[in-house]
Amino acid sequence: MSSLKVENLTVSIENKVVLRDVSFELQRGEILSIMGPNGSGKTSLALTIMGHPRYRVISGRILIDEEDITNLPPDERSLRGLFLAFQNPVEVRGIRLSTLIFSALNKRRGEKNLLKSDPQIIPLLMKNLRDVGLSNEHLQREVNLGFSGGEKKRSELLQALMLKPKFLILDEPDSGLDVDGIKITAEKIKELASQGTGIIIITHYARLLKYLSPREIIVIRDGKIVTRGGSELSYLIEEKGYEALNGDLNA
């Protein structure tokens, strides 16, 4: 069975431990949500799974389809089917969004000339572009340069749709988006899941989860998993906040 596994992951950044003994498993086509208050380690988890060089894995493993990817560089992880839609994607000067998308696709097809633009891809690109609510003009702009918060999120989603990953991690995909944007995002996530992408939604708020009903919700705090459960957990958090869970745990 194709899966993304995180086993007993303990991670530090600049000698500070940010994740402790985190484990979960995600099958393709499933939706999972990781929730937690600000600063709980959600983004650290996403960046560690993607292989950010500043995060050091002290113990534990990350596996895709039973292959240990813990020590692979980010590009190798990407080529094995992992995709991270960033919470705050950086601006990359000098590279147009279209160039990035073509290069990433060319790399996957073993095309040597990364800059080649295959005309056969263009109809799909245009469709996805429209679907996520961006225009041709965004494609011609440098990656994320001068994009609004919402445009950045839409661009991340567009890239995910074009690359069709096996496992997609979305870090706060709804922040900066209006109601329409949130709806589109939810629809596209469902669409990808139905086509076999395993999805991790990292979110502080429950609002996006209403549309998605994830199989499992994992709540982390101070880098540790404090509780896990079904969709009902997100309603509890929405109504009573993370403090309620604390009470629950302490009880």
Binding site: H52, P74, D75, F86, I95, A104, V143
Partner: peptide
């Protein structure tokens, strides 16, 4: 920025 591009599969 490098990490971002690498996360898209580019070395």
């Amino acid at each position: 920025a490098l990490f971002y591009l690498q996360s898209r599969g580019l070395s």
